[in-house]
Design a protein around this nucleic acid. Structure first.
Length: 570
RNA sequence: GUGCUUGUAGCUCAGUUGGAUAGAGCGUUUCCCUCCGAAGGAAAAGGUCGUGGGUUCGACUCCCGUCAAGCACACCA
């Protein structure tokens, strides 16, 4: 990376300058204290380092330090300049041609770091109850989670994606009771869900169980004796619906982990026993309590209720311990912000059972607001629920994925349906896809004959197929030279893909990919308007085609991580 | 009441571990197609970084207070 090359040069120069006694009273330098930034004013250079922080130990003025360091640098064909305490850097032709060269060499793996410490990661997200269709909020976790999985894989990690099915507990019984009412309605009975608000909470009154009731009656003549049969039937239907939607939304789980099996396998009881042995359990009011407050939680938590049954937390503890026992180095969970109270207690349990709680990373996501015609539509718990299915049908998979991923997970997301549907620059997805389609179009034109309507003659293709293949497969660094001065910004933006990926993967911030891809598209559109690619000057044309090929490749790499399509034409 | 998150241009948001004149997109205004996709580009205008203190050479960034918004505070899942 150019950035790293620059920092490396600076730091080595600092070490030499210290050795030579040129940095005043400074006697040692610790690598990593200086940081590279982008100059606010691009005229200063591509990158910069501020050496003011060394002034304290050197006891000389920052500009003098900067000059002393620059003197020690092997400059190659790059430019270094000093302004105040800043050392500015402008990459020379060697670095620029190298970076395009790297794109041609690495292709679809361009951007993957050379040596990273590969981790075995289990990423858990969505994990919805199988009691109804996904709502819009689930869409955010689904999109962000799958992008994060793609990103971490691209980065080089081993990623296992898991969906935890909350298929135990009273909600499943509620689901069965609700289906029973829908079936009786189908059978012609005059019956409905209770109108009393409190009683109504014991049911799922959404319309989505009507088709399930119809389906049930196709193979059964009436209500079963046991409501459990209905619960299982409905649960199964909901799970299948959810799985289908996830696939359609390009979200692929390696495993769906049923909470129920966790109970049935005895792992939950096993976990309770282990906790008891650890001495962190006490009995109060007939229930067993876990001393989570010993590990930073604000209060202790019930782990076995007075009636002898386990709480939701108990299963969750067992689940996380199971993940650890499956040998993962790291667990990453995406949870809605409404679950933030659970972080401390789950981490506490991991620590109490002798595991390292730092292995668990929980990304808390703020919720989603739907904006329709400029008005916020707040997502109520049950009423007015817009399903993810509806949203995707309305705006498409690409736009939904992009919009759900484009904001920092810490901010509530405003999803503007109208904007996501527009086909213009107001819509970032469209803008980016257009850039890719435009690149493809130029590449097509480069090898196509053209019919001239004025003369009625057919003009030969600007480049023969053989020449084009040669450029693509046997690209040489010199090929880029004719256009290198007009394409500096574009080349640097392409090169930035590597540092963007690194940052994004290490901080788990997928929205930076969406930002990057917009910036790259913008640089490309700008380059396109200022420089004609297809022209008489063959060397110049080839150099610019090389850039177009690079842009296409990098856009594709980024869009693949987002799992948004990169269209050849639109 | 306690905890977590958020407050930056008219709107939606960046701001990379404290650094140069606080950035981008949309919207507004003005330009740019005889020509590779104008579904695009160039430029202008637009700011008391919620607010009041503090820390230091330097604060959107760190600390304390305060105001506003969202969420959570079960022997529910």
């Amino acid at each position: 990376m150019i950035k790293d090359y620059f920092l490396d040069n600076i730091e080595n120069a600092v070490l030499r300058a210290v050795e030579a006694g040129k940095l005043g009273q400074m006697s040692e330098y610790q690598k990593g204290t200086l940081i590279v930034e982008k100059p606010k004013n691009p005229d200063f250079g591509d990158f910069a380092v501020n050496v003011s922080s060394l002034a304290r130990s050197a006891k000389i003025a920052p500009p003098m330090i900067a000059n002393a360091i620059v003197e020690e640098i092997d400059k190659d064909d790059n430019e270094y300049s000093v302004i105040g305490g800043f050392i500015n850097f402008k990459a020379g032709k060697n670095l620029l041609t190298d970076s395009i060269d790297e794109i041609f060499k690495k292709r679809e793996s361009f951007g993957r770091p050379e040596n990273n410490n590969k981790e075995k990661i289990i990423l858990e997200y969505v994990s919805a109850n199988p009691t109804g269709p996904f709502h819009i909020g689930h869409g955010r976790w689904a999109a962000m989670g799958s992008v994060l999985a793609n990103l971490l894989k691209f980065y080089g990690h081993d990623v296992y994606q898991e969906f935890y099915i909350n298929d135990a507990g009273s909600q499943i019984q509620k689901l069965g009771n609700s289906l029973a009412i829908r079936i009786r309605q189908q059978l012609g009975e005059d019956i409905d869900f209770p109108s009393d608000e409190i009683e109504r909470k014991n049911y799922y009154p959404g319309d989505y169980l009507i088709p399930v009731a119809e389906k049930y009656l196709k193979t059964h003549s009436g209500l079963p004796g046991d409501v459990k049969e209905l619960s299982d039937f409905a649960k199964n239907e909901m799970e299948n619906l959810q799985k289908e939607l996830l696939k359609h939304f390009r979200v692929y789980f390696d495993n769906f982990y049923s909470e129920l099996t966790l109970h049935q396998s005895g792992k939950v009881d096993e976990c309770v026993n282990k906790l008891k042995k650890s001495g962190k359990i006490y009995t109060k009011d007939g229930a067993d309590w876990f001393r989570s407050s010993d590990y930073g939680d604000d209060q202790d938590r019930v782990i076995k209720k007075a009636d002898g049954s386990n709480t939701y937390l108990t299963a969750d503890i067992a689940y996380h311990i199971d993940k650890l026992e499956r040998g993962f180095d790291r667990m990453i969970n995406i949870w809605g912000a409404d679950h933030h109270g659970y972080v401390a207690r789950v981490k506490a349990s991991i620590e109490a059972l002798g595991y390292n709680p730092d292995k668990l990373e929980i990304l808390l996501g703020q919720l989603v607001n739907l904006v329709i015609n400029g008005n916020e539509v707040r997502m109520g718990k049950r009423k007015n629920m817009v399903t993810l299915d509806d949203l995707i049908e309305e705006v498409g998979v690409d736009a939904t994925r992009f919009w759900m991923s484009m904001r920092n997970i810490d901010t509530t997301l405003d999803f503007d349906i109208e904007l996501a549907k527009t086909n213009s620059d107001e819509n970032p997805v469209f803008y980016v896809q257009y850039a890719h389609a435009r690149a493809c179009s130029i590449l097509r034109n480069a090898v196509e004959e053209k019919f001239d309507t004025q003369t009625g003659k057919t003009l030969p293709a600007p480049l023969t197929a053989v020449e084009f293949e040669e450029l693509k497969n046997n690209y040489k660094k010199e090929d880029l030279l004719p256009t290198i001065d007009t394409a500096r910004k574009l080349i640097l933006k392409l090169e930035e893909f590597k540092s963007m990926i690194k940052m994004s993967a290490e901080t788990r911030q997928v929205y930076t990919i969406c930002r990057y891809v917009q910036e790259l598209a913008s640089e490309f559109h700008s380059f396109y308007n200022a420089n004609r690619v297809i022209s008489e000057d063959k060397a110049l044309m080839k150099s610019r085609l090389a850039l177009v090929l690079s842009v296409k490749q990098v856009l594709k790499n980024a869009l693949d991580i987002l799992a948004v399509t990169a269209p050849e034409r639109m």
